[in-house]
Amino acid sequence: MAADTGRLTGTPPAVRVRDLYRDFGPGRTVLRGLDLDVAPGEFVALIGRSGTGKSTLLRALAGLDRDVAGHGEVTVPDSVSVVFQDSRLLPWKRILPNVVFGSRAPDAVVRGERALAEVGLAGRERAWPHELSGGEQQRASLARSLVRQPELLLADEPFGALDALTRIRMHALLRRLCETHRPAVLLVTHDVDEAIVLADRVILLDDGVVHTDVRVELPHRSPADPAFAELRAYLLDRLGVHDEDVPAGRRAAA
């Protein structure tokens, strides 16, 4: 499937990557000539096997890999927010100051409180990070990246530590927030279902390049939809998960 550059042809992409190389020493070239465009407001899910360079790509876009060898062309918007895999709250700041840390908006505190309420942490503004559960810490860090209203949101497995129910609530929340603020989003996930539920586009990284790039065009994003199952089966196949790997009980569903 060909790479799809923006829905509205003519508007420059929010993210533009050309011929990106990153290597961690001899024989450890992780990205080899990667090209990627993300349109403004587009939600892209990035999947791929462990160790294929998803975090490496995200760090390149976040500008956090100045010490890594490589070359290529990277363009990103001015305001970028990152949700790290670990929540990375400063242990010496309470939750609200953590959420508004670095935000220069005059109404930062109000926005921070609202963001905390949105992620279900109203009333915990004065807690210390170590007093929150792992999932709560992750939600606080999501709130931190949302108060900034970024043009690009980079998220590296942000929902890893959440239970199924909270995860579904966070999915709904993230979709809603993205529809209001319309940042471009690049979200790394290991969960193919999560990718299909959330994203406008799913790209699969393999061998250092974008190996598969599909647009998600489903009327209802429900696993009950046969088109959902079809897309999931396609992506799993592309990931190298074949029918014989799926336990017999689950094969019928796929």
Binding site: A62, G63, L64, S79, V80, S81, V82, F84, D86, R88, L90, K93, F101, G102, R148
Partner: peptide
């Protein structure tokens, strides 16, 4: 990793030192 976080929040040196 906290320095990294601070870099992505685009804060200045002074704020970095203080916070």
């Amino acid at each position: 990793r906290y320095a990294e976080l601070a870099e992505t929040l685009a804060i200045g040196r002074g704020e970095f030192v203080r916070h």
